[in-house]
Amino acid sequence: MAQGGFDRRRVHGPNESFQPIFDDDYEERGALYKGWQLGQTRRKRRAEDIRPIFLNTGFIKQANGSAYIETERTKIACAVYGPRQSKSSAYHEAGRLSVEVKFAPFSSLVRRAPIRDAEDRSVANLVQQAIAPSVRLDLLPKSVIDIFITVIECDGIESCVAAATVATSTSLAKAGIEMFGLVVSCAGAVVGDDVWLDPTEEETQLASGMLLCACMPALGTTTSVRQTGRVFPAKAFQSLQLCQERCVEIHHIVAQALHEDENESNS
């Protein structure tokens, strides 16, 4: 961005400055599971409850499609550009998805340096795997769809991946890219004999294993399943079932967000 007459030697801060707002319930969050023992119930919500979802589309004007998702402490922005001409020199009959995930420096309790690390890429891979089967890439030869995900705040990495997947699919629908169906995703944590859906960071630490499921409820198909940690097969199937039931509800939220956006642009 070469701008004429721009003084590069000085700091161009805003004229006004504000005191940073500090997280006041940080200690309260850390103390939520103090003295919790295996076998006790989940605190603050029921095991099969997910956090309320706020989903909004089209707030990044220059992108072809964009979405913002917020589930309490998970806040993610997603922008879709393209289809663009592929920069790589090899010929690809089908289009490709390039997913880039960036964590804001203030997205977690420990500051994240603004460089690409292993976590960015693993999240990007998981989102790419969940989304790729839903997009009709055979219609877009030689093209690439750029997906940029910014994690503004992250509370539980699995829930963060699930929310990012929902936001990405919504953005793609908004961008008018042909796909087989909308992908929604839900995470479940196996804690003792229970399955806690949409776990937070603290709940993730109590879990013995995690299950992440992405599916297309409109077609009744699953696009991606990822299991980590120690989970018995019966528990894995139970979590999968619970996640899929929850995904139908999330699908309604996505549908509502898209319809709202349509009504807004018509009026």
């Binding site: 042909e178 087989f180 169906g181 909308l182 077609l219 009504n263």
Partner: peptide, 11 residues
């Protein structure tokens, strides 16, 4: 749904 719009995947 009030509008006639279809979602991706809807029959």
């Amino acid at each position: 749904m009030p509008s006639d719009s279809l979602l991706p995947g809807q029959p």
